[in-house]
Design a protein around this nucleic acid. Structure first.
Length: 954
RNA sequence: GCGGGCGUGGUGGAAUUGGUAGACACGCUAGACUUAGGAUCUAGUGCCGAGAGGUGUGGGAGUUCGACUCUCCCCGCCCGCACCA
């Protein structure tokens, strides 16, 4: 071999790694562990584009680096293989989602393999594999078998709750539960029948059933998510959508709200991500206050964050859906209130939120009594009050709240001022600081904090309120009316859900002949013929056998996508051989603990990353895992954007006519995306390829510009460049395979890192790739000489010239800093500089070129392996640990080969101001801080500033 | 509106963390080699200026011997949440 034949080299080493299981992690290693994880992909039919591997490359570099540093690294990969696209495809084609998924996974694997990742494929997981989802079902059962004890602040077994109930009833139990739990004594508990007991326990379980409104679209035969609905009709097809109550499985994540919030302090995550979660959890401190209603005997509870402003209350507003509305409305107002409720019910929650400007509301005719002044306060309903937050009712303080103020103005309600020194014209005044209250009885002259404390105390004394913490986060709906997901290990007896014992898992997904919901609106599993549970045989049997004595109907819903992804990181810890016995064994869990580094996109901030924290905390509570946070450090990789290309179609022409970008302004045109594959680096379009690709371009005419068609880079001519998210419909997807074929995986890896800081969004442009490719060629050359690099010239003898060693150690130091700080883009530059300098210095010493390979190998592992082998090593470079990254080694080398700053260094020395010029020079020369760098040379310039600071330019 | 982040050449981005701003790469310019090149090599490239020199990190002030870096105000862009009481 002579020249740098990357394709050959890469194929060779990928094969070698696979055959030798170079990257197998060891569960019984003496080395310290390090766990590097990527967010596993959903294997879609489109395959990978260049954006996907960005995070994988970064984590792979880190994993390889940590191996070199002597860690036992776990770096696995798998597939989040339950999901919607495969199901949609199945609905359209009748092809089983398992088959589609299998094919897509094969394609992904092929693409991933080409890039040379150091994954331990023996630990692969697939969430749709029964051997995997068996344990997802198992965790569901653990949740079903648990309740949340607020006093111990942890989840406990339902069995313990039964014991408490039968010995002391539930009046002392402080649990996260449904609101409507009746209070009972031990005796009452014992007297309840089985169904009644089950019903009560369900209100305590960490996963429970509840009626929830869903968006049902009869024409599409499916349930839609909020964002799939536009103006009350389905986004696809424009069919009507109705809100329908359905029994759904819910996860009591709200029990963990405070811990999920607090523990954000324990983990090293990007700030925006933590903020997203903080916002999502939405903790607010305040008070709950009860208002008695005039005459009717009803009470309204409100939640407020500003109990201090209670003397500014001039009216109350209930959400239109509030239970009390119809009970308290007077006869005279009934019709108007009814109309209003109907009108709001028709609008989706989203529309209501979007329409902030129109202030609407209706007076109920009822009055509440102010708890302190005894004044009568009118009670209104209005859709600015949300049923789902707080108590669904507010005490309105127009002087202190924008929304209350606007409502008051709209309906001519009074705006009593309660702020000292604030003019009526300055209202509403919402700031909490630098203000004292007035017209507020016992709160007059007090500041926010004191006033809040006092008012809460008064409320508690009078028994009409208390301090309260409210969370915005609601419990998470856990069932989906879909086919391609985990079946619930649940059957129904007397209408109550019963767990299937974990001994009989997995409960396999049944076969159905169609993947659509049934005509009755049941989920697709309603179509399965063999989908009933025989409690005697403990197996799935035909529906015909259902007798509700020993054979019962099974749950028809399936679990959502986030079920399988909420615990997969534990599954990787377990070796294949033991996976049948444990979701992950104690030994494996104790060894690997948690994920040290997690890399993935920020789009999962309030989904996957919140749910997995919740599950882990739960598993921790039940002593099933040793950690209560799964991901110690997390990095979000930025998106790689595609640069789209446009061609301009002339409007109003009979025949389709497209013009080159330079001509487009002369006509009335509209832009059309063209496939970036047909565009070269100079924006020239390959017309033949475009026409051959068919479609609308097949019979078109083209107006050329200098004999070519140039594509535009934006839709309008005002913008010179436009980058968009890569998507099939925009024809701007760049496939990594093509890059691997043309330049090699090592080039792709380095280039993706070189593109910019890992966490930033950046456009993909191929122009720069030649620079990186050129670097790898130069690297190759550094180890060879002669025409076509015929000879391998690394000398076996030592030539530790100071120059070369300095370059090497500067590079080691910089690269190590870069990797530790996840600045992979700068270390690519560092390599380029090093290779340029070594080439210029003519260094061929083994002592220099060997460590250089170790440095580069995480980034460009294939070329590193090849050159490593040429150096005469028989062991793979990828697996080995090297001392060059050790602290000791670093210090030692800094002493022997001080890092050269090429005359660009300045320092400060604190010297007495009184010294003469000569004395200063002498002091500088002998100072141990400078001596190392000066190496006997005299400084070019010494600047003495009045005071005692000296600048030395070397 | 609230919370957070960021502004450096034509471009992506560096800056030893307060010490010669613009490393490295792309692009561009000139030259060499070549049948040819969108290959390779050499030199140049922040801006103004022929030059010496001046000027320069969104704008303005401040701290400092010294500021891209720290502080304050303003301007612009991006992200998250958003009728959350």
């Amino acid at each position: 071999m002579s020249k740098y034949h990357f394709n050959e080299i890469e194929r060779k080493w990928q094969k070698y790694w696979a055959e030798n299981k170079t990257f197998a992690a060891d569960n019984r290693s003496e080395k310290p562990k390090y766990y590097v994880l990527d967010m596993f992909p959903y294997p879609s039919g489109v395959g990978l584009h260049v954006g996907h591997p960005l995070g994988y490359i970064a984590s792979d570099i880190y994993a390889r680096y940590m191996r070199h540093r002597g860690y036992n690294v776990l770096h696995p990969m798998g597939y989040d293989s339950f999901g919607l696209p495969a199901e949609q495809y199945a609905i359209q084609t009748g092809q089983h989602p398992a088959k589609t998924t299998e094919e897509n996974i094969a394609r992904y694997r092929e693409q991933l393999d080409k890039i040379g990742f150091s994954f331990d494929w023996d630990r692969e997981v697939r969430t749709s594999d029964p051997e995997y989802y068996r344990w997802t079902q198992w965790i569901f059962l653990q949740l079903f078998d648990s309740w949340y004890d607020k006093e111990a602040d942890k989840a406990r077994s339902i069995e313990e709750l039964r014991i408490i109930f039968s010995s002391e009833g539930n009046s002392n139990v402080k649990a996260a539960s449904d609101d409507d739990v009746p209070v009972f004594t031990a005796q009452e508990w014992l007297d309840f029948d089985k169904v009644a007991k089950e019903e009560i326990l369900l209100k305590y379980r960490l996963t429970y059933l509840a009626d929830t409104e869903v968006n049902w679209c009869a024409q599409l035969g499916t349930v839609l998510a909020n964002d799939e609905i536009v103006n009350g009709v389905s986004e696809r097809g424009g069919y009507p959508v109705v809100r329908k109550k359905m029994k759904q499985w819910i996860m009591r994540i709200s029990a963990y709200a405070q811990r999920l919030l607090d523990d954000l302090n324990k983990i090293d995550w990007p700030l925006p991500l933590k903020e997203s979660q903080t916002n999502w959890i939405g903790r607010s401190e305040g008070a709950e206050v009860t208002f008695n209603l005039l005459d009717s005997g009803h009470k309204i509870n409100v939640f407020t964050t500003r109990p201090d402003t209670i003397f500014g209350v001039s009216f109350m507003v209930l959400a239109p859906e509030h239970d009390l509305v119809l009970k308290i409305t007077t006869e005279a107002q009934k019709q108007e209130v009814r109309n209003y409720i109907d009108a709001t019910a028709k609008r989706s929650e989203r529309d209501r939120m979007a329409d902030v400007k129109n202030i609407t509301g209706v007076f109920t005719g009822a009055y509440a009594i102010h708890p302190f002044t005894g004044e009568n306060i009118p009670v209104w309903i209005g859709d600015y009050v949300l049923a789902g937050y707080g108590t669904g009712a507010v005490m309105s303080v127009p002087a202190g709240d924008r929304r209350d103020y606007d409502f008051a103005k709209q309906f001519n309600l009074p705006v009593p001022n309660i702020f000292e020194g604030i003019d009526d014209a300055e209202l509403p005044f919402a700031a909490k600081s630098d203000i004292r209250l007035e017209n507020s009885d016992f709160l007059n002259g007090l500041e926010y904090q004191k006033a809040v404390a006092i008012v809460i105390q008064k409320l508690e004394e009078k028994g009409i309120g208390r301090g309260k913490i409210s969370f915005r986060m609601r419990d998470a709906v856990f069932s989906r009316q879909r086919y391609w997901g985990e079946p619930f290990p649940i059957y129904y007896q007397d209408g109550m859900p019963q767990a299937i014992s974990e001994k009989y898992l997995p409960l396999r997904l049944p076969e159905v002949e169609k993947y659509l919901p049934t005509e009755e609106g049941e989920p697709p599993l309603g179509r399965a013929d063999i989908w009933a549970w025989d409690t005697e045989k403990n197996e799935v049997v035909s529906n015909n056998a259902i007798d509700n004595i020993t054979v019962f109907p099974l749950e028809l819903n399936t679990m959502p996508g986030w079920a399988g992804s909420s615990w997969y990181f534990f599954r990787y810890m377990e070796e294949k051989e033991n996976r049948a016995k444990y979701f992950a064994s104690k030994g494996a869990l104790d060894y690997w603990q948690d994920v040290d580094l997690y890399i993935g996109g920020s789009e999962h901030a309030t989904g996957h990353l919140l749910y997995s924290r919740f599950w882990v905390k739960f598993l921790f509570d039940r002593n099933l895992v040793p950690v209560d946070e799964p991901f110690k450090k997390l990095i979000n990789q930025g998106m790689i954007l595609g640069e789209s290309a446009f061609i301009y179609r002339v409007e109003g022409e009979e025949k389709k006519k497209f013009v080159s970008a330079g001509r487009a302004e002369a006509y009335n045109t509209h832009p059309l995306h063209v496939n970036v594959d047909f565009v070269d680096g100079h924006n020239q379009l390959n017309i033949k390829a475009l026409v051959d690709s068919g479609g609308e371009f097949a019979d078109a005419t083209f107006e050329l510009e200098n004999g070519e068609i140039y594509v535009g880079k934006s839709e309008t001519f005002k913008v010179s460049r436009e980058v968009e998210k890569m998507s099939k419909s925009k024809f701007n997807v760049v496939n990594p395979d093509a890059i691997c074929d043309q330049y090699g995986a090592d080039t792709l890896r380095m280039y993706e890192m070189f593109l910019g800081p890992l966490e930033q969004a950046k456009p993909w442009n191929t122009a720069g790739i030649t620079g990186v490719h050129g670097f790898l060629k130069k690297l190759w050359k550094l180890y060879h000489s002669g025409e076509n690099e015929t000879f391998f010239v690394v000398e076996k003898t030592a030539d530790t010239s100071k120059e070369g060693m300095k370059i090497l150690h500067k590079t080691i130091k910089k690269v190590q800093e870069d990797i530790d700080g996840f600045s992979f883009n700068t270390s690519v530059s560092t390599f380029m500089i090093a290779v340029n300098e070594l080439t210029a210095a003519g260094c061929y010493a083994r002592e220099i070129l060997e460590p250089l390979l170790i440095l580069i190998s995480p980034y460009a592992p294939h070329i590193a392996e090849e050159l490593w082998e040429k150096l005469g090593h028989t062991e793979s470079i990828s697996k080995a640990a090297f001392p060059i990254f050790d602290e000791k080694y670093l210090v030692e080398n800094e002493k022997n080969y001080p890092i050269s700053f090429n005359g660009k260094m300045r320092f400060n020395l604190n010297l007495p101001a009184s010294l003469s010029k000569e004395e200063i020079e002498a002091a500088v020369m002998s100072h141990d801080k400078t001596a190392r760098y000066l190496e006997g040379a005299s400084p070019k310039k010494i600047i003495v500033v009045p005071g005692k600071i000296v600048n030395i330019v070397i």
